[in-house]
Design a binder for these strands. Structure first.
Lengths: 204, 204
DNA sequence: TGTACATCAGTGAACGCGCGTTCACTGATGTAC
DNA sequence: TGTACATCAGTGAACGCGCGTTCACTGATGTAC
């Protein structure tokens, strides 16, 4: 044994990046216990910090959940942007792939997705969260605008709503295991079906 | 004053229909406090009954929420069935109107809708809930089958998934106030847009 | 019809627990001079 | 470079509260005979 026991390492009084550590602990708590059993004390315990420490960074539980939701939206936007690029240069293909990214995010992070779209606890009047959530909407809007522009048309609000709703519906139902058949298919086949469903909502 | 004070009326030891009264109180609690702050004691208090009484009917909190979710699905199915009939005899029109009923239910009962589609607390292995939730799926399936039959086709799983997802997406986003523009329109105009969006997902 | 008894529905006191919040504190860091 | 001081980040004990659960109980209802 040449290595020190990790527990014996001197623990500095100041954490270094407690804010980020608390967000990570909060996400893990959300995954394990669900938002209904979420508590600030459990988060602090998971981050190995006294239960009063989070107040310095987030105020209260809703402050922490608001910050976590904002981080969720930023990751959500980045995730979709990465998928969108797989669509190459065709605007419709880009919109469809971006939608698959939306669905993939919901499947990979159901607890976070639920916090973002199915909870009243995050406070959307907070500028940080408002901005992050709005950016997610703008992404869909921009992808639709590109499709319209390629056809020499104006962007249409109804088209934006249709593509958002179809992608959101597929994402929410599949992250809640409601689309049983799709869950049983191999990924390639499933994605092909999802693409065909999204495509119905893009005017030809 | 010829009427007795209501509070002075003799209160029978046995409630009569405490089960139904507790379900109503639970729904009101869900609306007012949200599922995250839901507690059995508050429900009992609201129903004017001792806090240990609900255990006789539902076991624990999840038992009560499971029963409430099942009742929610039954009302959800009835609500859609009523709307479906507005579609007259054309199967596609019936499917579309049924979808509007789905969306209308979510807008009128956001807390119940969230319990049904965005919570892990109801126990879907309970036969009562399993049956009620499955009936909601079968309704969409049957409406799709009627559309296919009218065209001399077989029912297609992908069509069922597409119509469910579009309707669910519109319902979830609008019950969470995310479709801002639609919320500002007069009902007739909004419904026309919703119909046109649903229609994109029904093969011609 | 009357009585005895089992079963059921609801009561209210008691318990231990985890929660958010407060508060005086301590250790670490940054800055003025 | 050194010292003094303000500010910041995290501690740990204490508090009161609402929660779920348990338990002996009581009042009401249903049934056997």
């Amino acid at each position: 044994m040449t290595r020190k026991k990790p527990a014996a390492e001197p623990r500095p009084y100041h954490h270094g990046d407690l804010r980020a550590a608390l967000l990570a602990a909060a996400e893990a708590e959300l995954v394990e216990r669900g938002i209904e059993a979420f508590s600030l004390r459990s988060v602090a315990k998971r981050a190995n910090v006294s239960h009063a420490a989070p107040a310095h960074h987030f105020g209260d539980t809703n402050g922490l959940l608001t910050a976590l939701a904002a981080e969720g939206y930023r990751r959500f936007v980045a995730h979709q942007a990465a998928w969108e690029d797989r669509g190459g240069t065709d605007p419709a293909a880009r919109l469809i792939e971006s939608g698959l990214g939306y669905i993939d995010f919901a499947q990979r992070h159901p607890a976070l997705f639920r916090l973002m779209f199915g909870s009243d606890r995050p406070d959307y009047t907070t500028p940080e969260l408002d901005k992050a959530a709005y950016a997610a909407y703008q992404q869909i809007e921009a992808a639709n605008a590109a499709v319209a522009a390629a056809k020499g048309r104006e962007a249409d609000s109804t088209d934006v709503e249709a593509t958002w709703a179809i992608v959101h519906g597929l994402a929410d139902l599949s992250s809640n295991q409601r689309l049983y058949r799709l869950g049983t298919l191999p990924a390639k086949q499933r994605d092909a079906i999802l693409r065909s469903i999204i495509a119905r909502n893009i005017p030809g």
